[in-house]
């Protein structure tokens, strides 16, 4: 971690420590990981903006079915390109110390593909299709049935879509979510 230190001032590190769920050392470690994605670019400018394709080379993101959504949600320019600070935000939310509510907030945005602030039927279909991967396809009626079951379970006010409150309610009751919605640094 020695050579990473030179790129940040003490003040910046303090800021990062205060504003994320990481300690200073973890911030430096995160930067190392970020740097490994594009060594020459980040070595030049510690906060360089990496295109989405580069960020997606991060091992956990590479295989994640929601990778592009994750990048878009965390990118400050909203197009999926991430600076180090965006990356740090991302890792902070996915870290072990982040509370469930924060994770739920971001998960909701990740799953909200069309950005209408509701997880509707089309969003659910997209999530299910991505979960099953590109090789295995569920039939249309099966997806329909599954979406219906999900809505039956969680759509409390019966409006055909999941609002954030409803989504958070599910997450509150799911003990597995916190384990699975996590990327170790």
């Amino acid at each position: 971690m020695g050579q990473g230190k030179s790129q940040f001032t003490e003040e910046e590190l303090q800021d990062y420590e205060d504003l994320t769920y990481f300690t200073k050392k973890e911030v430096l470690y995160a930067h190392q990981k970020f740097k490994a994605l594009a060594p020459e670019k980040v070595g030049h400018n510690k906060n360089a903006k990496l295109p989405m394709a580069k960020v997606l080379q991060y091992p956990e993101l590479r295989v994640n079915p929601f990778r592009d959504r994750i990048c878009k949600v965390f990118s400050s320019s909203n197009d999926g390109d991430c600076t180090f600070e965006d990356f740090l935000d991302m890792m902070s939310v996915f870290s072990e110390n982040a509370p469930k509510a924060v994770k739920a907030e971001h998960a909701f945005r990740i799953f909200d593909f069309d950005g209408d602030d509701m997880i509707g039927v089309s969003d659910l279909r997209e999530v299910i299709e991505r979960l099953c991967g590109s090789e295995l396809k569920l039939s249309d009626s099966e997806i329909q049935q599954l979406v219906q079951s999900v809505l039956e379970e969680a759509d409390l006010d019966d409006d055909g879509a999941l609002s954030f409150a409803e989504f958070e309610h599910i997450i509150d009751k799911s003990s597995d979510f916190c384990h699975s919605f996590r990327i170790r640094l």
């Binding site: 956990e60 295989v63 994640n64 599954l146 379970e153 599910i170 997450i171 699975s180």
Partner: peptide, 18 residues
């Protein structure tokens, strides 16, 4: 109650990297 929801929203392990 939330069997399907858990399956859909908590199904993927974000930590998988291989």
């Amino acid at each position: 109650f939330y069997m399907y929801c858990n399956l859909v929203f908590g199904g993927w392990d974000f930590c998988i990297q291989n």
